[in-house]
Design a protein around this nucleic acid. Structure first.
Lengths: 159, 159
DNA sequence: GCGGATTTGTTAGTATGCAAATAATCTCGC
DNA sequence: GCGAGATTATTTGCATACTAACAAATCCGC
């Protein structure tokens, strides 16, 4: 391993920049943002491996929310699934292209596009739910039951 | 709010699909993947608002790691910052274009591209570190000191 | 030293995710 | 009823992230 030849070459510089005198040390591996990105990546990989019909996490979120809540406007669906207007549009377009959702214009407000599950979409939610539960369990597998409850609670505060 | 007119229309269907008889309920808002995505989004927004010089989270991770570890090959830098080969290439390309990093070929292994901070890159790491610390603190602001330690520990197990 | 397996880097394609700009429509104060 | 401001949807551009396929170079068993 040639990389092992490179020592942490500026311990001195780093020490001077973030040593005891200037405040706290900065270690990338302890930063919550870096850890969040890695945990999300691992979840995404588990999701891709186990979800049926090549649904992506955002597509599944939109389908699950539509099943929970019934039809709603495109932008509201975005807010309910933590996607901005540009992102939810792409997700809805792909769901419509696959025949899982359909759009109709709102007679009360012609700016609005109402999104609803099709029959195929509703049935897919039923078939995919066990996979989604398994994905959650696999993602949390490294944690004990009480740690699982704790991280869900703490992530809920961070959202 | 026209959307409020839509009740959770298929409580019965959902109840039949995931009710007490079939196992657990599935509520999107309790799924760790959905919560991770939202926490990451919040962190990304805080990062974009507070980091200097328009550094992105991945660019900062690469710079911070190069400062910690010294020069290394492009693919190894990717592994050390949780990016695959395709992603780290784009990040390194943008750092090189901005004069923050430079590449040279490895005489021992001509496949390898060694990535190193430039002087400007090293100085930028020093200037940006206080912002990075502030970003971490702001992201964790909704949590108590002990909750902060807990979530960092639990996320470390999930990565 | 030869050849298969591995590693390294690149490219192309798909899907998020956000910002900013635009256009159409609606709401509300007056 | 009218006009300012807000909301809804769309489009474009940039930056992540991943997969898959590929070429070049190295390593390692024999």
């Amino acid at each position: 391993m040639a990389e092992a030849l490179n020592p942490p070459f500026d311990e001195i510089t780093a020490g001077a920049a973030a040593g005891p005198a200037s405040g706290k040390r900065y270690l990338l591996d302890e930063q919550v943002g870096f850890l969040l990105r890695q945990a999300s990546q691992r979840h995404t990989a588990i999701f891709a491996a186990r979800m049926i019909e090549d649904l992506t996490p955002t597509q599944w979120a939109a389908l699950a929310r539509l099943k929970e809540r019934g039809p709603c406007s495109q932008n509201l669906l975005g807010r309910l699934t933590a996607m901005d207007a540009a992102t939810i549009k792409g997700v809805v377009d792909r769901l419509v292209a696959r025949g899982l959702a359909e759009t109709r214009s709102d007679p009360q407000d012609s700016r609005r596009l109402t999104i609803a599950l099709t029959r195929a979409g509703g049935e897919l939610v039923g078939r995919a739910t066990p996979a989604a539960q398994e994905i959650t369990q696999t993602t949390l597998a490294p944690l004990s039951a009480s740690e699982r409850r704790t991280i869900v609670r703490l992530l809920g505060k961070l959202k």
